[in-house]
Design a protein around this nucleic acid. Sequence first.
RNA 1: GCCGCCGUAGCUCAGCCUGGUAGAGCGGCGGGCUGUUAACCCGUAGGUCCCGGGUUCAAAUCCCGGCGGCGGCGCCA
Length: 437
Amino acid sequence: MQVVSSKEALSLPDGETVIVRGWVYRKREFKDKIFVLLRDREGIIQLVFPQQIPESQIARKLNIESSLIVEGMVKSDVRAPGGKEIHVSKVLWYFIGEPFPINEYAAQADSEYLLDVRHLWIRSRKMWAILRVRHTVFEAIHEYFRSKGFYEVHCPIFVSSAVEGGATLFKVRYFDREDVYLTQSAQFYLEALIFSLERVYTIAPSFRAEPSRTRRHLTEFWHAEAEMAWAGMRDVMRVSEELITHVVRKVLEDRLEELSLLKRNLEKLELVKPPFPRVSYDEAISMLNSMGLDIKWGADLGADEERALTQKFDTPIHLYGFPSVAKAFYHKDYPEDREKPLWERRTLSVDVLAPEGYGEIVGGGERIEDPEELRRKIREFGLKEEDYQWYIDLRKYGSVPHAGFGLGVDRLVMWICGLDHIRDSLPFPRDIRRVRP
RNA sequence: GCCGCCGUAGCUCAGCCUGGUAGAGCGGCGGGCUGUUAACCCGUAGGUCCCGGGUUCAAAUCCCGGCGGCGGCGCCA
């Protein structure tokens, strides 16, 4: 007797006897029979227990989320969800659960209670669908980078200094020596690794101790980062748009059922194809000013501006050429701006903004390869050279033009799934308030 | 860090403005029902109205303080 998934059972001919196992999703009792919707990793199938058989005594006791293994016969019925159901002849194993504390009303409300019982809520159809899309997103990212000759590498989580100047770090006690920090980006380590492998990528958690309270921020998020030797800002644009397009297409191929369960508008995703529109910061400023917003050159774009800008496009866009003062020190300045003062210079940096108001999902650009230029920028930013000693060191021994970017994988999942909040893009989100379950 | 909102049954919420001793739906339990699709119908149990103080004859309701949570901005992926 073979154990089959709900999905496999639905594809079998009538009369097959199979074993299925899973959890009770719904139960409906009648005088002569009991319907149990059984949930497993692949979906849902309806079990029918006739009241005459002794097994129905067990079925009567089943609560929502009770678990069981049954043997039964596949039978077509137009009234069954999926067109087929299993007429149970034997219960091989079961566990009667306590009353399940989550109901449809809580699910609709998307309440904080669902965050308290997250360890149980991940069984829901919604989280099931999201987790399966997320699985495919990670798969597609690996697939893309590997197919393009990038080596996968792994960088430390414990680090001794900051990557971003302003971003806040989580401090961790490290034996009896000075404190270390949780990494906020693998970028500096990837930059070191290109001198060995030329094109590298990693998917790893990054940590930000920013007290952000928005639907787009986590304190622990999954970061897909890539770094390329012999590359510039244009290469970052090309690789990032190819990557995003590949991921979206893969999800559209493999996860249609999940997307429709999430009520995602597929047309929006089908529009995603390279090249993405390229908008310079200068153009963005004049576009925004002509839309009635009052933005001065030099300011970073806020959430309102990002939203206004992306509303003009149906697909993700590349926004490039940010002012140097609005970006981290390691970004390379436009060569023609080199003699200008810091506040008038632009960087060879680029962000990808997702449409439908989802905003920034990628940040990257060309890095400074000249050690003297890097030192100057560190000083201009009021940072200490000694804090970046090994990073400067990379430029001393056969420096090369190089560029890279970081993709917020949770934000990508959020946008692809059309979620209201980033914390639903992963099973156990960490934000400023929540570290459990 | 700044601004706003919320805390009542296991869960989702109403009641609060205008003070008078606690309500609904779901879930639980019991019963009914010839195939349900978040089934339906009848019955029933279930409460530290977040905590502390104040005003009042009387506080879930008004005032003050605290705690917890949610949303938004800034910052970023």
